[in-house]
Amino acid sequence: MGILDFANPTRFMKLTQLVLPWLVGLCAIAFAVGLYMSFFVAPEDYQQGDTVRIMYIHVPAAWLAMMCYSIMAISSLGTLVWKHPLADVSAKCAAPIGAAFTFISLVTGSLWGKPMWGTYWVWDARLTSVLVLFIMYLGLMALWRTMEDPIKAGKAAAILTLVGALNLPIIKFSVDWWNTLHQPASVMRMDGPTIHPDILLPLAVMAVAFTLLFFVIHLMAMRNEILRRRVRTLRLRAASAARPAGGSATLQPAE
């Protein structure tokens, strides 16, 4: 953490201080509208009945789960290539949020699957690759937790994130191929009805609401992370201010 690193985060803190309240407000409005529409405006599906309402949280969550990984991958490039001081903060803070949304999409998916398919879980290609994504999120979080030095941890995690970004499409592809060989009888295809505007509009609003929610939490978590690093530097300084006499001499140079 050099002097240069301090410049950018400080500006970031000021900027987010201004932007965050607006984002929170927008997010709340979007959720109010989206939830109202998904419960009262959107019609029930002629095949799936009211369970289709699960879609309004399931699909945005699944979408965010992937978007979050893309943000982490871009941030990792930022850490390794451009060495931007905020990049690894962004990547680190995105991981728990991504894991949470992946978890939501897995749980809501299986709660949707139970009435529709008769089982909570099938080793369907799409579900399985999302589960692998979930494990990767948790692994990255564990990597960050086990390393003491945030800079080192950030670099290690960036490498893993990028390798994962290359590997995820391969996993997806191979799992598709793996699953078509042993197609279980109980799996129903996810085609459903053709998307009708009455359904599409609430879905779009919910997607916007979820995206705003992601950015709100992400920015808040990033602010926390910057504070955490500030605490770390201060603590290092506090410890190295060995004896009170020696410490004050370095802090107050000219008397």
Binding site: E44, D50, R53, I54, A61, V107, L111, P115
Partner: peptide, 19 residues
């Protein structure tokens, strides 16, 4: 919410809980 109300409510509740 029809016959599967429990599943729908559980979905929204868990989503809300996680967020």
């Amino acid at each position: 919410l029809g016959p599967h109300a429990g599943f729908i409510i559980a979905s929204y509740a868990i989503c809300f809980g996680v967020v």
